[in-house]
Design a protein around this nucleic acid. Structure first.
Length: 268
DNA sequence: ATGGTCGTAGGACGA
């Protein structure tokens, strides 16, 4: 029985609820994790999602900024966590536990701070916040709970590998691809025993992007993308991974998000 | 080349 998990930075769920419905109807993932919902919990557009069979919705939102939501057609257990990384009250994390064919899985949904423009924490506090957030993520282990596998998805706002950006050399001093961020994210992965599932299916020497700036005249022709969105898992799930889909076409949909959905399908 | 475009708000600010 396949299990599919999708992640998508939607950049306002209320503005793009039509695109979310289209995505769910067309690709039918079991669970969709959204980031940048920009929506208080009491205004979340649950009704059309429930009508499509996604009856289990948990959100962690706030007014105007950030916000994550996990939308599922599988029942979710009571083991829900919303961690306040850096203790600043931002809605940037939500984790749930679900069961698929007698296997329990914790699914973390993250929206890591973008970090501003200047990659220097002494003059740019937003960059410092991003580094502190990453530091705190190093405490998260994929095998933290006995008998529970783990999946971590979201907009991590870091493109770690050379071919996760259109020009490694030109982006070395651009926030999202600086060495200090990349080293931090790699340490989150190694310390927590996480597996980068996207790169298990798409070799590291191939360009792979999930985000293209709104500022390009022609995003598709310029193709100056970055891989900011990720799907990781505990080691036990890697052998069950069957397909990774990066839905590049979604960047060309009407009034699109600047990020596209990524879907991982497992045979479990 | 140092711009350019979005979304939330109802003026900047974050991305």
């Amino acid at each position: 029985m396949p299990l599919s998990i999708a992640t998508w930075n939607i950049n306002s769920v209320r503005l793009r609820i039509g695109l979310v419905e289209h995505f769910l109807k067309t690709y039918e993932p079991d669970i969709l994790c959204l980031q940048e919902t920009k929506c208080p919990n009491d205004q979340f557009p649950s009704k059309p999602l429930k009508a499509l069979g996604y009856e289990h919705i948990l959100m962690h939102g706030q007014k105007g900024y950030h916000g994550v939501a996990t939308i599922s057609r599988l029942p979710l257990t009571e083991l829900v966590e919303r961690r306040d990384y850096c203790g600043v009250g931002d809605a940037r994390h939500l984790s749930v536990v679900f069961t698929h064919r007698r296997k329990s899985i914790r699914l973390h949904n993250f929206y890591v701070p973008a970090g501003g423009d200047e990659p220097d924490r002494t003059i740019n506090p937003k960059f410092g916040h991003k580094l502190d957030f990453i530091e705190e993520m190093k405490l998260l282990h994929a095998e933290a709970e006995a008998g529970i596998s783990s999946i971590l998805v979201g907009d991590l706002n870091i493109a770690p590998l050379e071919h996760d950006v259109w020009s490694h050399k030109q982006l070395l001093k651009i926030v999202s691809h600086t060495p200090v961020e990349v080293e931090g994210l790699m340490e989150v992965m190694t310390k927590g025993a996480w597996v980068d599932l996207m790169r298990r299916k798409i070799p590291a020497d191939q360009k792979l992007y999930t985000w293209w700036s709104y500022r390009a005249q022609d995003w598709n022709a310029a193709d100056r993308g970055r891989r900011l969105d990720h799907i990781w898992s505990s080691a036990d799930l890697e052998a069950h991974l069957s397909v990774i889909t990066v839905l590049r076409e979604a960047r060309g949909w009407e009034r699109p998000s600047d990020h596209v959905p990524v879907i991982a399908t497992f045979d479990l």
